[in-house]
Design a protein around this nucleic acid. Structure first.
Lengths: 219, 219
DNA sequence: AATTCTCTACCCACTTTTGGGTATTTTCCC
DNA sequence: GGGAAAATACCCAAAAGTGGGTAGAGAATT
């Protein structure tokens, strides 16, 4: 049932300190063989080409090539690879989306080291590890697919809406945005209303948070 | 010049995985003796009361009692304690403010383990460790003190204002905040106006960004 | 050819925020 | 005790945002 050979793991995270700490943690586990690291998705993909890995710990929030895009590419190129996504945020929406594209588990950065160990073992043997958070996310998703509309995903936001969202994040008013983009203030209002409907934001603050969490704006 | 006895270090961070990884990293250094951890500033202060530590690694962004408030209390109660602040953000403003209140160094979460080692040694022996980031922040500060008025600093924001700012970041309206804190809506308006004056924010979006950049809110 | 989506633009009405004051009480420090 | 800072609360008025519609032109897709 379990492998006789040890696991080779690739840790991908842009925070060096976190990355190296996690590596040391992994090396203390019995089942783990070689541990290597990469500072972003691009480097990770190169390392996957070069040598064999069984499992990836993948940070969701990264520059250059983020966890989302990296996971999609890995699933396509290395279907056997196990992926455990790690993130600071517990947005249920993105969790179920990640599971959908083929990620095997999702852990928060404040997870217990024991849970990391359990996740690695479970993903290796059972092909998945669903903790309470992931279960909740999938439950919500099933409910949603049943009869309810979900919160926005980044994919649902149009290019023009992204543009306007970015300007909102720069503290501009609707009027100022209209002048900047050479469209009517009314048009900007429409875009903004659509954004709020899609993101389920109560006000501009919610929009800004959505933008930040989805890499649309940074500060 | 250097101590014969080994260093006792307290790692304070709300992300368990990061915390435990960092602990393992520290334990691999020669100079380090005992390493303990705490998940927030409140717990950290309790541990400092209980037993002896020489140095703290302190995360800036934390719930319950964040790095800023914790540092102030530690400096007041344990003047001999060395503090290395760790954060995800490189906002120059808050770095110089932190140094001003008595923090001995400031590292980013993507720092190299070698740099952590260097910082620990330098802080212990020379009472400070200024990397390029800190130096730049202090340089900016000197320039600013010279002739220009600064943007807000975290230091200028009162505890009550922080509290209200955090609730604003949760998409609450003034009325809702008033009800939550059992004060008049008018009072909340006053606090908010003061916040906007201090932070030079044009609107709520600016407030949210300030909160995020200064570790007052996280998302 | 028909459908769907995006971008554009307007209507109306209501709520909330923003910006300018003033002022009292409490708390904390010197 | 005196003084400063913080927290409390109100006034007024203008600006901006929020929420509900409808609707046409053009692009993309089926």
């Amino acid at each position: 049932m379990s492998q006789p050979s040890k696991l080779n793991i690739l840790v991908t995270d842009d925070h060096t300190l976190f990355r190296r700490g996690t590596m040391m943690l992994l090396e203390s586990f019995d089942e783990i063989g070689r541990v290597d690291d990469a500072e972003n998705g691009k480097v990770a993909l190169e390392k996957l080409e070069e040598s064999n890995f069984d499992l990836m710990l993948l940070d969701l929030e990264m520059p250059v090539l983020d966890g989302w895009e990296t996971a999609k590419k890995v699933v396509a190129k290395f279907p056997e690879m196990k992926i455990i996504m790690i993130s600071m945020h517990d947005s249920l929406q993105i969790i179920s989306d990640l599971i959908e594209i083929g990620v095997h588990s999702y852990l928060l950065k404040n997870a217990d080291p024991d849970e990391v160990h359990k996740a690695i073992v479970s993903v290796t043997n059972n092909d998945f590890y669903y903790n309470q958070l992931v279960s909740k996310a999938l439950h919500k998703k099933v409910q949603k697919d049943g009869h309810n509309k979900g919160v926005a995903r980044r994919a649902d936001i149009s290019p023009r809406e992204i543009e306007i969202l970015q300007l909102i994040c720069q503290e501009l008013t609707m009027k100022e945005i209209g002048e900047k983009l050479f469209v009517s203030e009314q048009t900007v209002h429409t875009h903004r209303k659509n954004l709020m409907r899609k993101t389920k934001a109560k006000n501009a603050v919610g929009l800004v948070k959505f933008a930040f969490q989805n890499g649309i704006a940074a500060f």
